[in-house]
């Protein structure tokens, strides 16, 4: 079957089996390997992309269901000579060890900072009107992204640095 996707601003038509996930389409058909396959079951967050602006696990999306949708991957938010604020902060704060989860962490944090700025509450927010970006808020809001190296303190430092750079 055929599906048309806009990925990082470019339109692509892909031909695929009905079982294909967006993760496999992005990596194998479109040749964008920045999005990582970790668990392939929505538990680790390594495959996080922005789907019509919202963060989702691309391993849990059937490509066939996303005809006409707009996708942003790690390759779409910056380049080696023009890093996004979050990419720059992860480098600066050493927000990783092996680096495998990093694209998912950065895509997830990109959406998370916008959610916080829009006043979206989290489970640990004192009231439901939104909250400041404390360590507890970041840990809760990023809990869908695992880091087996456990670089969490530095990941949070990097996210905080990027949020301050943006405001």
């Amino acid at each position: 079957m055929k599906t048309t996707l806009t990925v990082n601003g470019r339109s692509h038509q892909v031909e695929h089996d009905a079982r294909r996930t967006l993760l496999d389409t992005i990596r194998d058909d479109l040749g964008l390997p920045g999005t990582k396959k970790g668990c392939d079951h929505g538990q680790c967050g390594a495959c996080t992309i922005l789907l019509n602006g919202e963060r989702v696990n691309s391993c849990l999306c059937l490509t066939a269901m996303h005809d006409g949708d707009d996708i942003t991957t790690i390759e779409g938010i910056g380049s080696p000579d023009r890093l996004s604020a979050l990419q720059k902060a992860f480098v600066e704060k050493d927000g990783y060890q092996c680096g495998y989860c990093t694209p998912g962490q950065i895509m997830s944090a990109t959406a998370m900072l916008r959610e916080v700025s829009e006043g979206a509450p989290s489970y640990v927010s004192g009231d439901l009107d939104g909250a400041a970006l404390t360590d507890a808020e970041m840990a809760e809001r990023m809990s869908g992204n695992l880091c087996r190296c456990s670089a969490y303190p530095l990941i949070r430092e990097a996210i905080l640095m990027a949020s301050e750079a943006e405001t």
Binding site: G42, G45, E54, V56, C61, S108, S122, Y123, G144, N145
Partner: peptide, 14 residues
């Protein structure tokens, strides 16, 4: 509160 207690932000978006 109950919804925010479940899953992850990525899952809840979908």
């Amino acid at each position: 509160r109950a919804i925010l207690a479940g899953a992850s932000a990525q899952i809840r978006n979908k």
